[in-house]
């Protein structure tokens, strides 16, 4: 497995990176941690003439935690897990990041790469939808912000234009209970099914609930109806069943080596039920 040749660029600033993208159009691709892109390049499933490495761009790094959380796109999974302030503010992130790949991959794999490449197997996109994060994109005409829930069209197809770079992720500081429940065959595998839940409660009743599912469609799925089914309830069996039923309306899994559609739909319901229970227990 040997990659094809490419011209390598390592810009120091976002404008420099954008200039390379503008110049080379669809022949150029940005690389962050590379752990999705490089295996694909090694199998020659994609041809990239110009590789734009973002590692030297200081503006793509950094985590700031306030009422709004801002995470630089080049922040690694390892950094997400070990950043004390972030773990306290958004514990769901670390819980999920620990279930991504393995230690070596987490040292290099970035949140930006994970959300931007549009791989439906990635965990962060669903999580970002659950947390109602927004993606800050820089392009030749300026910067714009897109809600995660509006970002994904299909497998590897997103709102990001080819000449744009994801620079940061922003999200409101969440509160309440949370859980990321993932079933996988082994460490390093994508999810058979995974569910992210973040909820708040007032007087023992759910006030707000957000539910997102991973690897159960060609895009991550934020199920507004599933969340709505929980609001006002104490997450008893009836409410959970309603949320699961609503979620099952929103997903569309395909068969693969992990199993057939029927199995995935069943497991999706199970992991969501467990995620809801754990999130509720953490309220």
């Amino acid at each position: 497995m040997i990659p094809n040749t490419f011209e390598y660029h390592r810009p120091k600033t976002i404008p420099d990176a954008l200039a390379v993208l503008t110049q080379h159009g669809d022949e150029a691709r940005v690389i962050a941690g590379g752990h999705s892109l490089i295996p694909v390049m090694k199998q020659r499933l994609t041809d990239i003439a110009h590789l734009v490495d973002l590692q030297d761009i200081a503006d793509l790094r950094g985590i700031s935690v306030g009422d709004t959380i801002r995470i630089g796109a080049m922040t690694t999974q390892h950094a997400l897990i070990t950043h004390a302030g972030l773990s306290a503010a958004v514990p769901l992130l670390a819980e999920a990041a620990l279930q991504i790949a393995d230690p070596q991959v987490r040292y290099l794999g970035t949140i930006g790469g994970n959300v931007a490449n549009g791989d439906p197997g990635n965990d962060m996109p669903g999580l970002m939808m659950c947390l109602d994060a927004a993606f800050v994109l820089s392009g030749p005409t300026g910067t714009r912000t897109i809600a995660a829930r509006d970002f994904y069209f299909g497998a590897y197809s997103t709102e990001r234009a080819e000449d744009e770079i994801l620079v940061a992720i922003e999200m409101p500081r969440p509160s309440g209970g949370y859980a990321y429940e993932k079933q996988k065959r082994k460490i390093g595998d994508y999810a058979t099914a995974a569910a992210a839940v973040q909820m708040t409660a007032v007087a023992g009743r759910v006030a707000t609930a957000s539910v997102a599912m991973t690897n159960l469609s060609d895009v991550p799925v934020w199920s507004a109806a599933a969340g709505a089914a929980l609001v006002g309830t104490d997450c008893g069996p009836v409410a959970v069943n309603a949320a699961v039923a609503a979620m099952l309306e929103d997903i569309n899994p395909g068969a693969d080596n992990r199993g057939p559609v029927e199995f995935k739909r069943h497991v999706a319901g199970v992991v969501l039920g467990r995620a809801i229970a754990r999130a509720f227990s953490r309220l």
Binding site: M1, P3, G34, H35, P39, K42, L51, Q104, Y107
Partner: peptide, 23 residues
């Protein structure tokens, strides 16, 4: 060669990395 096995692990700038998946 697909960053699953770790036989190529080296330490890079204080991180364990799979050197088959780094240019």
């Amino acid at each position: 060669e697909t960053s699953h096995c770790g036989a190529c692990t080296v330490d890079m700038n204080g991180m364990s990395v799979k050197s088959c998946t780094v240019f």
